[in-house]
Design a protein around this nucleic acid. Sequence first.
DNA 1: CTTCCAAAAAATGAATGCAAAATGACAGAG
DNA 2: CTCTGTCATTTTGCATTCATTTTTTGGAAG
Lengths: 227, 227
Amino acid sequence: MVDESSPAPAVAAKPAASLHEGLLVALRDFIVEGNLADGARVPERALCERFNISRTPLREALKVLAAEGLIELLPNRGARVRELSPEDVRELFDVMGGLEALAGRLACERISEAEFAEIERMHHDMYRFYLRRDMHGYFHCNQAIHLAIVAAAGNATLAATYASLAGRIRRVRYSANLAKDRDRWGEAMREHEAILDALRRRAGSELSDILFLHLRNKRKAAQASAG
Amino acid sequence: MVDESSPAPAVAAKPAASLHEGLLVALRDFIVEGNLADGARVPERALCERFNISRTPLREALKVLAAEGLIELLPNRGARVRELSPEDVRELFDVMGGLEALAGRLACERISEAEFAEIERMHHDMYRFYLRRDMHGYFHCNQAIHLAIVAAAGNATLAATYASLAGRIRRVRYSANLAKDRDRWGEAMREHEAILDALRRRAGSELSDILFLHLRNKRKAAQASAG
DNA sequence: CTTCCAAAAAATGAATGCAAAATGACAGAG
DNA sequence: CTCTGTCATTTTGCATTCATTTTTTGGAAG
Protein backbone atom coordinates (compact mmCIF):
# COMPACT_ATOMS: atom_id res chain seq x y z
CA MET A 1 0.00 0.00 0.00
CA VAL A 2 2.15 2.82 -1.23
CA ASP A 3 1.25 6.41 -0.69
CA GLU A 4 0.23 7.80 -4.03
CA SER A 5 0.63 11.49 -3.50
CA SER A 6 4.35 11.80 -3.01
CA PRO A 7 5.92 9.55 -5.62
CA ALA A 8 3.53 10.62 -8.34
CA PRO A 9 5.71 12.66 -10.71
CA ALA A 10 2.84 14.99 -11.57
CA VAL A 11 1.64 12.82 -14.45
CA ALA A 12 4.91 12.70 -16.33
CA ALA A 13 3.75 12.19 -19.87
CA LYS A 14 1.73 9.22 -21.12
CA PRO A 15 3.48 6.07 -20.05
CA ALA A 16 0.61 3.63 -20.23
CA ALA A 17 -2.19 4.58 -22.57
CA SER A 18 -5.49 3.10 -21.54
CA LEU A 19 -7.16 1.24 -24.33
CA HIS A 20 -9.78 3.85 -24.96
CA GLU A 21 -7.24 6.67 -24.90
CA GLY A 22 -5.79 5.27 -28.06
CA LEU A 23 -9.17 5.59 -29.67
CA LEU A 24 -9.41 9.17 -28.50
CA VAL A 25 -6.07 10.07 -30.07
CA ALA A 26 -6.96 8.25 -33.27
CA LEU A 27 -10.31 9.95 -33.52
CA ARG A 28 -8.84 13.36 -32.77
CA ASP A 29 -6.28 12.94 -35.50
CA PHE A 30 -8.94 11.63 -37.83
CA ILE A 31 -10.90 14.84 -37.41
CA VAL A 32 -8.01 17.28 -37.14
CA GLU A 33 -6.51 15.93 -40.32
CA GLY A 34 -9.62 16.90 -42.14
CA ASN A 35 -11.13 13.53 -42.99
CA LEU A 36 -14.50 15.06 -42.18
CA ALA A 37 -15.78 18.18 -43.87
CA ASP A 38 -16.43 21.32 -41.93
CA GLY A 39 -19.84 21.20 -40.31
CA ALA A 40 -20.41 17.66 -41.48
CA ARG A 41 -22.25 15.19 -39.35
CA VAL A 42 -20.03 12.73 -37.56
CA PRO A 43 -21.40 9.33 -38.56
CA GLU A 44 -21.38 7.22 -35.41
CA ARG A 45 -22.06 3.96 -37.07
CA ALA A 46 -19.51 4.41 -39.83
CA LEU A 47 -16.79 5.35 -37.35
CA CYS A 48 -17.58 2.30 -35.26
CA GLU A 49 -16.76 0.12 -38.22
CA ARG A 50 -13.79 2.29 -39.14
CA PHE A 51 -12.18 1.76 -35.74
CA ASN A 52 -13.66 -1.65 -34.97
CA ILE A 53 -15.30 -0.67 -31.73
CA SER A 54 -18.81 -0.41 -30.45
CA ARG A 55 -20.74 2.78 -29.98
CA THR A 56 -20.16 3.17 -26.26
CA PRO A 57 -16.44 4.02 -26.31
CA LEU A 58 -16.90 6.04 -29.47
CA ARG A 59 -19.57 8.16 -27.89
CA GLU A 60 -17.39 8.70 -24.84
CA ALA A 61 -14.58 9.90 -27.07
CA LEU A 62 -17.02 12.16 -28.90
CA LYS A 63 -18.01 13.79 -25.63
CA VAL A 64 -14.38 14.52 -24.84
CA LEU A 65 -13.77 15.95 -28.29
CA ALA A 66 -16.79 18.17 -27.83
CA ALA A 67 -15.40 19.38 -24.52
CA GLU A 68 -12.19 20.22 -26.34
CA GLY A 69 -14.17 22.27 -28.80
CA LEU A 70 -13.31 20.22 -31.85
CA ILE A 71 -16.85 19.09 -32.50
CA GLU A 72 -20.22 20.16 -31.21
CA LEU A 73 -23.00 17.95 -29.89
CA LEU A 74 -26.52 18.83 -30.91
CA PRO A 75 -29.15 17.27 -28.64
CA ASN A 76 -30.73 14.30 -30.37
CA ARG A 77 -29.08 15.37 -33.54
CA GLY A 78 -25.64 13.91 -33.16
CA ALA A 79 -22.19 15.39 -33.49
CA ARG A 80 -20.98 17.82 -36.09
CA VAL A 81 -17.49 18.95 -36.93
CA ARG A 82 -17.31 22.40 -35.50
CA GLU A 83 -17.10 25.12 -38.07
CA LEU A 84 -14.74 27.91 -37.22
CA SER A 85 -16.26 31.25 -38.03
CA PRO A 86 -13.88 34.13 -38.79
CA GLU A 87 -14.76 35.36 -35.32
CA ASP A 88 -13.72 32.03 -33.81
CA VAL A 89 -10.43 32.17 -35.66
CA ARG A 90 -9.83 35.70 -34.45
CA GLU A 91 -10.49 34.62 -30.89
CA LEU A 92 -8.27 31.58 -31.14
CA PHE A 93 -5.38 33.55 -32.54
CA ASP A 94 -5.64 36.09 -29.76
CA VAL A 95 -5.77 33.47 -27.03
CA MET A 96 -2.83 31.62 -28.54
CA GLY A 97 -1.05 34.96 -28.63
CA GLY A 98 -1.81 35.48 -24.97
CA LEU A 99 -0.53 32.03 -24.10
CA GLU A 100 2.64 32.52 -26.11
CA ALA A 101 3.13 35.87 -24.44
CA LEU A 102 2.85 34.10 -21.11
CA ALA A 103 5.20 31.38 -22.24
CA GLY A 104 7.79 33.95 -23.23
CA ARG A 105 7.50 35.68 -19.89
CA LEU A 106 7.87 32.45 -17.96
CA ALA A 107 10.65 31.22 -20.20
CA CYS A 108 12.67 34.33 -19.38
CA GLU A 109 12.42 33.42 -15.73
CA ARG A 110 13.72 29.90 -15.95
CA ILE A 111 15.23 29.06 -19.31
CA SER A 112 18.66 27.48 -19.17
CA GLU A 113 21.57 28.47 -21.36
CA ALA A 114 21.37 25.12 -23.09
CA GLU A 115 17.72 25.59 -23.90
CA PHE A 116 18.36 29.07 -25.19
CA ALA A 117 21.23 27.84 -27.32
CA GLU A 118 18.92 25.24 -28.83
CA ILE A 119 16.32 27.86 -29.70
CA GLU A 120 19.03 30.08 -31.12
CA ARG A 121 20.19 27.22 -33.27
CA MET A 122 16.68 26.66 -34.57
CA HIS A 123 16.41 30.35 -35.25
CA HIS A 124 19.50 30.30 -37.40
CA ASP A 125 18.21 27.25 -39.22
CA MET A 126 15.00 29.09 -39.88
CA TYR A 127 16.91 32.09 -41.17
CA ARG A 128 18.67 29.87 -43.65
CA PHE A 129 15.32 28.55 -44.84
CA TYR A 130 14.16 32.13 -45.16
CA LEU A 131 17.15 33.09 -47.30
CA ARG A 132 16.57 30.06 -49.49
CA ARG A 133 12.88 30.90 -49.71
CA ASP A 134 12.18 27.38 -48.48
CA MET A 135 8.66 27.87 -47.21
CA HIS A 136 8.18 24.34 -45.97
CA GLY A 137 11.40 24.25 -43.97
CA TYR A 138 10.76 27.72 -42.62
CA PHE A 139 7.28 26.83 -41.51
CA HIS A 140 8.44 23.68 -39.77
CA CYS A 141 11.25 25.51 -37.99
CA ASN A 142 8.97 28.35 -37.03
CA GLN A 143 6.58 26.01 -35.32
CA ALA A 144 9.39 24.23 -33.54
CA ILE A 145 10.62 27.52 -32.12
CA HIS A 146 7.24 28.55 -30.80
CA LEU A 147 6.78 25.13 -29.27
CA ALA A 148 10.24 25.28 -27.72
CA ILE A 149 9.40 28.59 -26.07
CA VAL A 150 6.23 27.08 -24.65
CA ALA A 151 8.22 24.11 -23.43
CA ALA A 152 10.87 26.36 -21.90
CA ALA A 153 8.17 27.97 -19.80
CA GLY A 154 8.16 24.78 -17.75
CA ASN A 155 4.44 24.83 -17.20
CA ALA A 156 2.61 21.64 -18.14
CA THR A 157 -0.80 23.25 -17.70
CA LEU A 158 0.16 25.99 -20.12
CA ALA A 159 1.55 23.47 -22.59
CA ALA A 160 -1.64 21.40 -22.47
CA THR A 161 -3.89 24.41 -22.93
CA TYR A 162 -1.75 25.62 -25.79
CA ALA A 163 -1.83 22.22 -27.46
CA SER A 164 -5.60 22.03 -27.18
CA LEU A 165 -6.10 25.38 -28.87
CA ALA A 166 -3.50 24.54 -31.49
CA GLY A 167 -5.48 21.42 -32.36
CA ARG A 168 -8.65 23.41 -32.74
CA ILE A 169 -7.09 25.87 -35.13
CA ARG A 170 -5.07 23.36 -37.08
CA ARG A 171 -7.90 22.67 -39.46
CA VAL A 172 -7.75 26.25 -40.66
CA ARG A 173 -4.00 26.51 -40.79
CA TYR A 174 -3.83 26.64 -44.56
CA SER A 175 -4.96 30.24 -44.47
CA ALA A 176 -1.94 31.21 -42.41
CA ASN A 177 0.22 30.36 -45.34
CA LEU A 178 2.11 33.51 -46.17
CA ALA A 179 3.47 32.30 -49.47
CA LYS A 180 1.72 35.08 -51.27
CA ASP A 181 2.79 37.78 -48.89
CA ARG A 182 6.53 38.22 -49.13
CA ASP A 183 6.43 41.44 -47.14
CA ARG A 184 4.81 39.66 -44.23
CA TRP A 185 7.45 36.99 -44.42
CA GLY A 186 10.25 39.49 -44.00
CA GLU A 187 8.37 41.21 -41.22
CA ALA A 188 7.87 37.91 -39.44
CA MET A 189 11.57 37.19 -39.70
CA ARG A 190 12.40 40.56 -38.15
CA GLU A 191 9.92 39.86 -35.35
CA HIS A 192 11.65 36.58 -34.68
CA GLU A 193 14.94 38.44 -34.42
CA ALA A 194 13.35 40.63 -31.77
CA ILE A 195 11.96 37.57 -29.99
CA LEU A 196 15.37 35.97 -29.80
CA ASP A 197 16.94 39.22 -28.66
CA ALA A 198 14.44 39.73 -25.85
CA LEU A 199 14.79 36.12 -24.79
CA ARG A 200 18.56 36.48 -24.72
CA ARG A 201 18.23 39.47 -22.41
CA ARG A 202 15.61 37.62 -20.36
CA ALA A 203 13.36 40.61 -20.87
CA GLY A 204 10.10 38.89 -19.95
CA SER A 205 7.67 41.75 -20.21
CA GLU A 206 9.14 42.92 -23.49
CA LEU A 207 9.15 39.43 -24.96
CA SER A 208 5.56 39.06 -23.86
CA ASP A 209 4.57 42.12 -25.90
CA ILE A 210 6.55 41.04 -28.93
CA LEU A 211 5.06 37.55 -28.95
CA PHE A 212 1.51 38.79 -28.64
CA LEU A 213 1.97 41.29 -31.44
CA HIS A 214 3.72 38.64 -33.51
CA LEU A 215 0.64 36.45 -33.28
CA ARG A 216 -1.57 39.45 -33.94
CA ASN A 217 0.29 40.15 -37.15
CA LYS A 218 0.14 36.51 -38.10
CA ARG A 219 -3.60 36.64 -37.62
CA LYS A 220 -3.92 39.75 -39.76
CA ALA A 221 -1.90 38.13 -42.52
CA ALA A 222 -4.05 35.01 -42.33
CA GLN A 223 -7.23 37.04 -42.42
CA ALA A 224 -5.97 39.06 -45.34
CA SER A 225 -5.09 36.00 -47.38
CA ALA A 226 -8.23 34.11 -46.45
CA GLY A 227 -10.90 36.76 -46.31
CA MET B 1 -36.23 23.58 -43.77
CA VAL B 2 -34.06 26.45 -42.75
CA ASP B 3 -30.40 26.62 -43.56
CA GLU B 4 -28.47 26.04 -40.39
CA SER B 5 -25.18 27.68 -41.15
CA SER B 6 -26.16 31.27 -41.65
CA PRO B 7 -28.90 32.01 -39.09
CA ALA B 8 -27.15 30.11 -36.31
CA PRO B 9 -26.21 32.85 -33.85
CA ALA B 10 -22.95 31.15 -32.97
CA VAL B 11 -24.50 29.04 -30.22
CA ALA B 12 -26.10 31.90 -28.35
CA ALA B 13 -25.93 30.70 -24.78
CA LYS B 14 -27.67 27.65 -23.38
CA PRO B 15 -31.29 27.87 -24.36
CA ALA B 16 -32.23 24.23 -24.18
CA ALA B 17 -29.88 22.14 -22.11
CA SER B 18 -29.66 18.65 -23.46
CA LEU B 19 -30.65 16.18 -20.83
CA HIS B 20 -27.16 14.90 -20.22
CA GLU B 21 -25.70 18.40 -20.07
CA GLY B 22 -27.67 18.94 -16.93
CA LEU B 23 -25.99 15.91 -15.44
CA LEU B 24 -22.60 17.25 -16.43
CA VAL B 25 -23.21 20.57 -14.72
CA ALA B 26 -24.60 18.85 -11.65
CA LEU B 27 -21.67 16.48 -11.43
CA ARG B 28 -19.16 19.25 -11.93
CA ASP B 29 -20.69 21.29 -9.14
CA PHE B 30 -20.87 18.21 -6.99
CA ILE B 31 -17.12 17.76 -7.29
CA VAL B 32 -16.07 21.40 -7.32
CA GLU B 33 -18.06 22.07 -4.18
CA GLY B 34 -15.95 19.54 -2.39
CA ASN B 35 -18.43 16.73 -1.79
CA LEU B 36 -15.62 14.34 -2.61
CA ALA B 37 -12.32 14.35 -0.81
CA ASP B 38 -9.11 15.16 -2.61
CA GLY B 39 -7.77 12.10 -4.33
CA ALA B 40 -10.80 10.06 -3.37
CA ARG B 41 -12.22 7.50 -5.72
CA VAL B 42 -15.31 8.60 -7.55
CA PRO B 43 -17.88 5.94 -6.74
CA GLU B 44 -19.67 5.22 -9.96
CA ARG B 45 -22.42 3.17 -8.50
CA ALA B 46 -23.18 5.59 -5.69
CA LEU B 47 -23.36 8.53 -8.05
CA CYS B 48 -25.69 6.62 -10.34
CA GLU B 49 -28.14 6.31 -7.49
CA ARG B 50 -27.47 9.87 -6.38
CA PHE B 51 -28.50 11.25 -9.77
CA ASN B 52 -30.91 8.49 -10.76
CA ILE B 53 -29.20 7.58 -13.97
CA SER B 54 -27.43 4.56 -15.33
CA ARG B 55 -23.70 4.18 -15.67
CA THR B 56 -23.46 5.04 -19.35
CA PRO B 57 -24.25 8.77 -19.15
CA LEU B 58 -22.34 9.04 -15.91
CA ARG B 59 -19.23 7.59 -17.45
CA GLU B 60 -19.57 9.95 -20.40
CA ALA B 61 -19.71 12.89 -18.03
CA LEU B 62 -16.71 11.52 -16.16
CA LYS B 63 -14.70 11.44 -19.36
CA VAL B 64 -15.52 15.09 -19.99
CA LEU B 65 -14.59 16.06 -16.45
CA ALA B 66 -11.31 14.25 -16.89
CA ALA B 67 -10.66 16.19 -20.09
CA GLU B 68 -11.29 19.35 -18.11
CA GLY B 69 -8.70 18.25 -15.61
CA LEU B 70 -11.03 18.05 -12.66
CA ILE B 71 -10.62 14.33 -12.17
CA GLU B 72 -8.22 11.78 -13.50
CA LEU B 73 -9.02 8.41 -15.01
CA LEU B 74 -6.80 5.51 -14.02
CA PRO B 75 -7.01 2.57 -16.40
CA ASN B 76 -9.14 -0.15 -14.88
CA ARG B 77 -9.00 1.65 -11.59
CA GLY B 78 -11.71 4.21 -12.06
CA ALA B 79 -11.84 7.93 -11.54
CA ARG B 80 -10.22 9.90 -8.78
CA VAL B 81 -10.65 13.49 -7.77
CA ARG B 82 -7.53 15.11 -9.03
CA GLU B 83 -5.21 16.25 -6.30
CA LEU B 84 -3.56 19.56 -6.92
CA SER B 85 0.09 19.45 -6.01
CA PRO B 86 1.76 22.73 -5.04
CA GLU B 87 3.32 22.57 -8.46
CA ASP B 88 -0.10 22.28 -10.11
CA VAL B 89 -1.34 25.27 -8.14
CA ARG B 90 1.70 27.27 -9.15
CA GLU B 91 1.09 26.41 -12.78
CA LEU B 92 -2.60 27.21 -12.61
CA PHE B 93 -2.00 30.58 -11.01
CA ASP B 94 0.52 31.49 -13.69
CA VAL B 95 -1.74 30.45 -16.54
CA MET B 96 -4.65 32.33 -15.02
CA GLY B 97 -2.31 35.28 -14.71
CA GLY B 98 -1.41 34.98 -18.36
CA LEU B 99 -5.06 34.81 -19.36
CA GLU B 100 -5.94 37.82 -17.23
CA ALA B 101 -3.01 39.69 -18.72
CA LEU B 102 -4.40 38.88 -22.14
CA ALA B 103 -7.89 39.90 -21.05
CA GLY B 104 -6.60 43.25 -19.86
CA ARG B 105 -4.78 43.83 -23.12
CA LEU B 106 -7.84 43.00 -25.20
CA ALA B 107 -10.13 44.94 -22.92
CA CYS B 108 -8.06 48.06 -23.53
CA GLU B 109 -8.69 47.66 -27.23
CA ARG B 110 -12.44 47.43 -27.13
CA ILE B 111 -13.92 48.32 -23.77
CA SER B 112 -16.71 50.85 -23.88
CA GLU B 113 -17.05 53.80 -21.55
CA ALA B 114 -20.10 52.20 -20.01
CA GLU B 115 -18.23 49.00 -19.29
CA PHE B 116 -15.34 50.90 -17.80
CA ALA B 117 -17.69 52.93 -15.65
CA GLU B 118 -19.20 49.71 -14.35
CA ILE B 119 -15.80 48.33 -13.42
CA GLU B 120 -14.89 51.63 -11.82
CA ARG B 121 -18.04 51.43 -9.76
CA MET B 122 -17.19 47.92 -8.62
CA HIS B 123 -13.72 49.12 -7.76
CA HIS B 124 -15.09 51.82 -5.50
CA ASP B 125 -17.41 49.32 -3.88
CA MET B 126 -14.47 47.09 -3.25
CA TYR B 127 -12.53 49.96 -1.75
CA ARG B 128 -15.35 50.57 0.69
CA PHE B 129 -15.27 46.93 1.70
CA TYR B 130 -11.53 47.27 2.16
CA LEU B 131 -11.93 50.28 4.43
CA ARG B 132 -14.55 48.46 6.44
CA ARG B 133 -12.31 45.39 6.59
CA ASP B 134 -15.20 43.39 5.17
CA MET B 135 -13.30 40.41 3.83
CA HIS B 136 -16.31 38.65 2.39
CA GLY B 137 -17.61 41.64 0.50
CA TYR B 138 -14.13 42.51 -0.71
CA PHE B 139 -13.53 39.02 -1.97
CA HIS B 140 -16.81 38.92 -3.82
CA CYS B 141 -16.19 42.32 -5.42
CA ASN B 142 -12.66 41.40 -6.33
CA GLN B 143 -13.78 38.37 -8.22
CA ALA B 144 -16.49 40.32 -10.00
CA ILE B 145 -13.91 42.83 -11.21
CA HIS B 146 -11.57 40.22 -12.59
CA LEU B 147 -14.47 38.51 -14.30
CA ALA B 148 -15.66 41.83 -15.73
CA ILE B 149 -12.25 42.44 -17.24
CA VAL B 150 -12.31 39.02 -18.84
CA ALA B 151 -15.80 39.73 -20.14
CA ALA B 152 -14.74 43.13 -21.47
CA ALA B 153 -12.11 41.39 -23.58
CA GLY B 154 -14.96 40.23 -25.78
CA ASN B 155 -13.42 36.84 -26.46
CA ALA B 156 -15.63 33.87 -25.72
CA THR B 157 -12.79 31.40 -26.18
CA LEU B 158 -10.75 33.25 -23.61
CA ALA B 159 -13.68 33.39 -21.23
CA ALA B 160 -14.30 29.65 -21.56
CA THR B 161 -10.66 28.77 -21.02
CA TYR B 162 -10.51 31.07 -18.04
CA ALA B 163 -13.64 29.55 -16.55
CA SER B 164 -12.28 26.05 -16.95
CA LEU B 165 -9.08 26.85 -15.11
CA ALA B 166 -10.97 28.75 -12.46
CA GLY B 167 -13.07 25.66 -11.82
CA ARG B 168 -9.99 23.53 -11.43
CA ILE B 169 -8.45 25.81 -8.87
CA ARG B 170 -11.60 26.56 -6.99
CA ARG B 171 -11.18 23.58 -4.73
CA VAL B 172 -8.00 25.09 -3.35
CA ARG B 173 -9.28 28.61 -3.07
CA TYR B 174 -9.27 28.62 0.71
CA SER B 175 -5.55 29.02 0.72
CA ALA B 176 -5.83 32.29 -1.16
CA ASN B 177 -7.55 33.77 1.82
CA LEU B 178 -5.45 36.70 2.85
CA ALA B 179 -7.21 37.31 6.11
CA LYS B 180 -4.04 36.74 8.02
CA ASP B 181 -1.90 38.91 5.82
CA ARG B 182 -3.00 42.51 6.20
CA ASP B 183 0.02 43.80 4.36
CA ARG B 184 -0.86 41.75 1.31
CA TRP B 185 -4.38 43.10 1.45
CA GLY B 186 -3.19 46.67 1.24
CA GLU B 187 -0.77 45.78 -1.51
CA ALA B 188 -3.52 44.08 -3.48
CA MET B 189 -5.68 47.17 -3.12
CA ARG B 190 -2.88 49.34 -4.49
CA GLU B 191 -2.43 46.95 -7.38
CA HIS B 192 -6.10 47.26 -8.15
CA GLU B 193 -5.71 51.02 -8.23
CA ALA B 194 -2.98 50.58 -10.82
CA ILE B 195 -5.16 48.18 -12.78
CA LEU B 196 -7.98 50.67 -12.95
CA ASP B 197 -5.59 53.45 -13.88
CA ALA B 198 -4.04 51.52 -16.73
CA LEU B 199 -7.45 50.46 -17.96
CA ARG B 200 -8.63 54.06 -17.89
CA ARG B 201 -5.67 55.05 -20.05
CA ARG B 202 -6.26 52.01 -22.28
CA ALA B 203 -2.63 51.11 -21.70
CA GLY B 204 -2.88 47.50 -22.81
CA SER B 205 0.71 46.39 -22.48
CA GLU B 206 1.07 48.05 -19.11
CA LEU B 207 -2.17 46.60 -17.82
CA SER B 208 -1.03 43.22 -19.04
CA ASP B 209 2.09 43.42 -16.90
CA ILE B 210 0.22 44.64 -13.86
CA LEU B 211 -2.38 41.90 -14.06
CA PHE B 212 0.18 39.16 -14.42
CA LEU B 213 2.18 40.43 -11.49
CA HIS B 214 -1.02 40.88 -9.49
CA LEU B 215 -1.77 37.20 -9.94
CA ARG B 216 1.84 36.33 -9.20
CA ASN B 217 1.64 38.17 -5.90
CA LYS B 218 -1.66 36.52 -5.14
CA ARG B 219 -0.02 33.18 -5.73
CA LYS B 220 2.86 34.00 -3.46
CA ALA B 221 0.50 35.07 -0.72
CA ALA B 222 -1.49 31.89 -1.12
CA GLN B 223 1.64 29.77 -1.03
CA ALA B 224 2.90 31.59 2.03
CA SER B 225 -0.33 31.10 3.95
CA ALA B 226 -0.78 27.51 2.83
CA GLY B 227 2.66 26.11 2.82
C1' DC C 1 1.12 -12.91 15.30
C1' DT C 2 2.53 -11.73 10.82
C1' DT C 3 2.86 -12.77 5.94
C1' DC C 4 1.57 -14.65 1.75
C1' DC C 5 -1.51 -16.90 -1.45
C1' DA C 6 -5.96 -18.02 -3.38
C1' DA C 7 -10.68 -17.53 -4.29
C1' DA C 8 -14.73 -14.72 -3.91
C1' DA C 9 -16.66 -10.27 -4.50
C1' DA C 10 -16.86 -5.90 -6.54
C1' DA C 11 -15.87 -2.70 -9.93
C1' DT C 12 -14.43 -1.28 -14.45
C1' DG C 13 -14.59 -1.28 -19.65
C1' DA C 14 -17.07 -2.49 -23.52
C1' DA C 15 -21.17 -4.52 -26.30
C1' DT C 16 -25.82 -5.07 -27.12
C1' DG C 17 -30.78 -4.02 -26.83
C1' DC C 18 -34.61 -0.91 -26.60
C1' DA C 19 -37.49 3.40 -26.46
C1' DA C 20 -37.76 8.06 -28.27
C1' DA C 21 -36.72 11.51 -31.43
C1' DA C 22 -35.31 13.05 -35.97
C1' DT C 23 -34.71 12.52 -40.89
C1' DG C 24 -36.50 11.39 -45.22
C1' DA C 25 -40.07 9.70 -48.43
C1' DC C 26 -44.48 9.70 -50.29
C1' DA C 27 -49.11 10.71 -51.20
C1' DG C 28 -52.79 13.94 -51.37
C1' DA C 29 -54.64 18.64 -51.41
C1' DG C 30 -54.45 23.22 -53.14
C1' DC D 1 -46.46 22.06 -59.94
C1' DT D 2 -45.86 23.14 -55.13
C1' DC D 3 -46.91 22.59 -50.45
C1' DT D 4 -48.25 19.93 -46.49
C1' DG D 5 -49.35 16.12 -43.49
C1' DT D 6 -48.47 11.31 -42.41
C1' DC D 7 -45.67 7.20 -42.11
C1' DA D 8 -41.41 4.31 -42.45
C1' DT D 9 -36.54 4.29 -41.69
C1' DT D 10 -32.58 5.80 -39.48
C1' DT D 11 -30.24 7.55 -35.58
C1' DT D 12 -29.64 9.03 -31.03
C1' DG D 13 -29.67 8.37 -25.92
C1' DC D 14 -29.89 5.45 -22.21
C1' DA D 15 -30.37 1.00 -19.70
C1' DT D 16 -28.94 -3.46 -19.29
C1' DT D 17 -25.77 -7.21 -19.81
C1' DC D 18 -21.21 -9.52 -20.33
C1' DA D 19 -16.18 -10.18 -19.88
C1' DT D 20 -11.97 -8.79 -17.68
C1' DT D 21 -9.48 -6.73 -14.11
C1' DT D 22 -8.87 -5.31 -9.54
C1' DT D 23 -9.69 -5.53 -4.68
C1' DT D 24 -10.85 -7.78 -0.64
C1' DT D 25 -11.41 -11.53 2.43
C1' DG D 26 -10.37 -15.85 4.27
C1' DG D 27 -7.18 -19.13 5.61
C1' DA D 28 -2.88 -21.57 5.93
C1' DA D 29 2.07 -21.59 6.48
C1' DG D 30 6.10 -19.70 8.64
